[in-house]
Design a protein around this nucleic acid. Sequence first.
DNA 1: CTGAAAGCGCTTACAG
DNA 2: CTGAAAGCGCTTACAG
Lengths: 335, 335
Amino acid sequence: MEKEEKKNITIADVAEALGVSRTTVSRAISGKGRIGKETRDRVLAYIEEHDYKPNVIAKGLAQSKTYNLCVVMPGEYDVVDLAFFQECLFGIQEIAGMMEYDLLLSICKSNDISPLERIVANRKVDGVLLMRTFVKDTQIEFLLEKELPFVTIGSSDYEGVVSVDHNHRSACRELTSIILMKQMNKIALIGGDEGYMVNRSRLGGFKEAHEKMGRKSDDALLFLNLDNNIMVDKKVDEILNQGADCILCMDDAVCSRVLKKLREKHVKVPDDIRVASFYNSTVLENNVPTITSLSFDAKEIGMVACRLLLDMIEGLTVEQKTLLSYEVVLKESTE
Amino acid sequence: MEKEEKKNITIADVAEALGVSRTTVSRAISGKGRIGKETRDRVLAYIEEHDYKPNVIAKGLAQSKTYNLCVVMPGEYDVVDLAFFQECLFGIQEIAGMMEYDLLLSICKSNDISPLERIVANRKVDGVLLMRTFVKDTQIEFLLEKELPFVTIGSSDYEGVVSVDHNHRSACRELTSIILMKQMNKIALIGGDEGYMVNRSRLGGFKEAHEKMGRKSDDALLFLNLDNNIMVDKKVDEILNQGADCILCMDDAVCSRVLKKLREKHVKVPDDIRVASFYNSTVLENNVPTITSLSFDAKEIGMVACRLLLDMIEGLTVEQKTLLSYEVVLKESTE
DNA sequence: CTGAAAGCGCTTACAG
DNA sequence: CTGAAAGCGCTTACAG
């Protein structure tokens, strides 16, 4: 039971202490290659007792691996739901850790992928996890060209990209259908950037719901690509003028702003107008009234994505598209 | 202009192509050791043209370095302001990138530091950045024992810990003083876990403001360690019953909940009661009325902390405590 | 100013 | 079943 050895013990130390070769020690640990059971047990016992941990970096160098994954997080905290990413990261970490992988972080604002480029140029990772996708996506194009394994969290139309996503289209279709069935007819859709894949899906689901029920969605009630709060405020005025009975918000940032505007104008939810969100986050959690929305399991999507990536790195072939489930959560705002 | 070389070019390739030794190439790149200007320029020109990037992992192995920093993020997304961490991370990334360091991510829930232990055991980092501090802090104790360089973002009372923090104490003292000067006398303080260092500072500032103005803070109006929303709701009732004229919230999560409760009870802010927060985040941004709060520069603290850590890793001695500035932002809620 | 050689801590054909 | 040796891609005393 030696304590306080400052110098890290190496495989050579173990080999010497046991009177075997480093090769043997290596095999005992990795389980690869033939090795006598007795020898293995001796080695394993020794490293256990002396708390020997192989140097992952050296191991990686020898194997041309890094045992690191890069996860690229969006840098725009105002647009996105950070709790989602947080929880998703947690899921990723859980799976990665089980497989002895660590996570390199890269925060990229949409127009600047240089943090990702750095990490790739430094060859510090075996694969990449993209936490959001654009219709035209520089990150995807870059990774495709580099031929580095990667998985996107969020759908993608690019050829040959492995993606995991919640089924936003179905979710939005279902929520919209419910609203329609509640005899609301003038439904306004307000929200975000069509450059995001997820907003495409949302819009798609919204339209599908109308079609399936033989209704037409009114293009005059579609307010997309609102890139700032002033725009949102303006559109809310328009929506009210047009006498809509419900406002569907593409995400919670927008929804939060819509609710603020309605409060300022003393328009009551749900009495004067109904409101629902295509996304569910903590931002809305303390709202009065509570808000009808969709709910997605962020941790799960992180875990699934990470597992897929790990499989790819090990050379397995994996499903190109994985769609995860969702929940529709009805609350006071649409009563 | 060769393209599409799949195999990564190594220092040996460069050396051979130029008819010099790897030693020479290495020196030209690192700038260490004597080397002829002409030779250096030839090497530099070659690697520029052929886009050679040294393998950082191999370099690290040879130098017993990793060129990685670990940043440990809190895992409780409900308690904390993620936008703060996001922005802070961005600052860290900026500085780290400039010095050719990358970031390993470790998300630790307060009671479980195993993700951090993994990374340290794997020797994948040269130093650690802690993004929050506890009064009794297992992470700090662990790192102290491992003798790994680290910097805390948030104050710490542990001996020999290098920390950077916003001056929460002064900030809270100032905001409280302003409230007191506005002739509010029954000020309730409501909020978080005293296990967090930051909440200690906040409480300290609150009390100091009272002392300096020769007033006594009423212990009956102190509501701390509220660990869930139900508790917050209950305390708001109490506060109203006691006839307080102002509620100071320790953080935005609490503040958000307080505002919800007040809305439900049809208590008007600021007419019936004033409200302010010791923290400023996007959670409150769309509130009606706007909320008086403190404002801190998250990116800056990340940058400062990262620079300190890098200095420590290079063996420089650094300031133990760095305190950063803040702003008091007065808004409608305390008019 | 430049290079041969040993070393960082592992792995892995290849022999035996 | 086990080991000597070469190799992963760098750096760095040590000589010259």
